[in-house]
Simulated scan of single mutants.
Amino acid sequence: MEGIIWHCPDPWRPLLPPGILAAEDARDLTLRRWPLLALTGRGTELLDRADCGILLVPGERAETVLARVRAETVVTYGLSHRDSLTLSSLSEPVVCVQRVLPRPDGGTVEPQEFPLPAGLPAPAAELLPLLGLRLLQMPLTGNPFSW
């Protein structure tokens, strides 16, 4: 496994990129140092401790989470202009990468926008942790959001 998402909603599980574990047991977080750890909003509330390379976390909760997680790099997501990963449009959702993001494989994701396909399993703002995982894990030779 290359990464883990803490408290992944069930409908997202089939959409997770290869190599990502959907964890519900806190022991999964402490098994090892994860190259990539994604936290859902619910996951930030239930998190005890973890160690990771890249932490994908809601921007408004990053400071609180960093008291419990050791991370080399923090990538925030949310609707604030300060978040690294946000949406530039809500009516026709477009994921916006605001700054260069590191990938666990050593590559990067350059600032750019990705239009999202129709038929998302939830509102785009709720899917930002899943979308971030796909950007950071999936090959960027094609659209990382083609389900």
Rank of each mutant, 00 (worst) to 15 (best):
R61N: 07
L120T: 07
L56F: 01
S84I: 02
E110T: 04
R13Q: 13
E92P: 02
E24Y: 13
P102I: 03
P18K: 08
V95H: 09
P123S: 09
S80W: 00
L87M: 03
D10A: 13
E24P: 09
R70D: 09
R61G: 02
P18E: 15
T64F: 09
V69Q: 06
A22Y: 02
D10Q: 11
A62P: 08
S80I: 01
P115G: 02
P11K: 03
L15K: 03
E126L: 14
V95G: 02
V100M: 05
A67I: 05
R68E: 08
T108R: 04
L37S: 07
A50Q: 00
L90P: 10
G107T: 10
G41P: 09
D25I: 07
R82K: 10
I54Y: 01
E60Y: 04
G19C: 11
L79S: 05
L90Y: 08
A38Q: 04
P111Y: 00
R49A: 15
F114Y: 11
L127F: 09
A124D: 08
D10P: 12
L37V: 06
L87S: 05
A23I: 11
I20P: 06
P14Y: 05
T86S: 11
V97E: 04
L46V: 12
L87H: 01
A22N: 08
R103Y: 03
Q98I: 03
T30D: 10
P123A: 08
T44I: 13
Q112C: 11
L128Y: 09
L66N: 05
L79N: 09
D25S: 06
L21R: 10
P35A: 10
V75T: 07
G19T: 13
P93I: 07
V74Q: 01
E60G: 04
C96Y: 14
P104M: 03
P104V: 04
S88Y: 10
C52E: 03
R103E: 07
P93C: 05
G106R: 01
L31W: 13
A38N: 06
T64Q: 11
L46D: 12
P102H: 05
V109P: 07
L90G: 15
T30S: 09
R70C: 01
G19Y: 13
E113V: 11
V95N: 01
P115N: 01
G53W: 02
G19D: 14
D51A: 10
D83I: 01
R70W: 12
V109D: 05
V100G: 07
P123Q: 15
L47Q: 06
A71D: 04
L79R: 08
S91N: 15
P121G: 07
G106N: 01
A26D: 12
A38K: 03
E72Q: 10
D83N: 04
